[in-house]
């Protein structure tokens, strides 16, 4: 399946992807409205260490342990994409506990949030679309 990959070589650590992600998952269409005064919780993370940077988000595992560990049935697959039903999630933390990528995190509303590859807005995930240096790619590997 198509996933978001990072070409570490080109990641600048600018963190724009995190903001584009946040915007894409907010209800706003404008970056200012979406982010102003907010605690930015994006579905992908940039890890920085000196000059090395890379982004990491949900790998949409073929066999996702988060779904197995989910105590509420909130996590499930839509096609090949692992998505979360925020109505069902009770934020028990089980998925945080088992995800080896650290891809899930608490949302502003107190339940879990995760990358859903921007499937609701269709097309290319916004993190990839907004990457200034072609470091993030959305492709089949």
């Amino acid at each position: 399946m198509k996933r978001v990959y990072i070409n570490e070589e080109w990641c600048l650590g600018c963190h724009l992807c995190e903001y584009n992600c946040f915007l894409s998952n907010s209800k706003e269409s404008d970056m200012v409205l979406a982010c102003m005064g907010k605690n930015i919780k994006s579905n992908l993370h940039i890890e920085d260490s000196g000059d090395i940077h890379f982004a990491f988000n949900c790998r949409h595992c073929k066999d996702p342990i988060c779904i197995k560990a989910c105590i509420s049935g909130a996590l499930h697959k839509e096609g090949e994409v692992v998505v979360i039903d925020k109505e069902k999630c009770v934020f028990c933390g089980s998925c945080i506990l088992v995800c080896p990528y650290g891809a899930l995190m608490e949302s502003e509303s107190g339940v879990m949030q995760k990358c859903e590859l921007c499937i609701s807005s269709g097309g290319v995930p916004k993190c990839v679309e907004g990457c200034p240096n072609g470091a993030l790619v959305f492709e089949e590997r």
């Binding site: 600048l12 600018c14 724009l16 970056m31 982010c35 102003m36 930015i40």
Partner: peptide, 10 residues
Amino acid sequence: CIACRVCERQ
């Protein structure tokens, strides 16, 4: 300005 600090990092 949303204080994303992209300017600072860049």
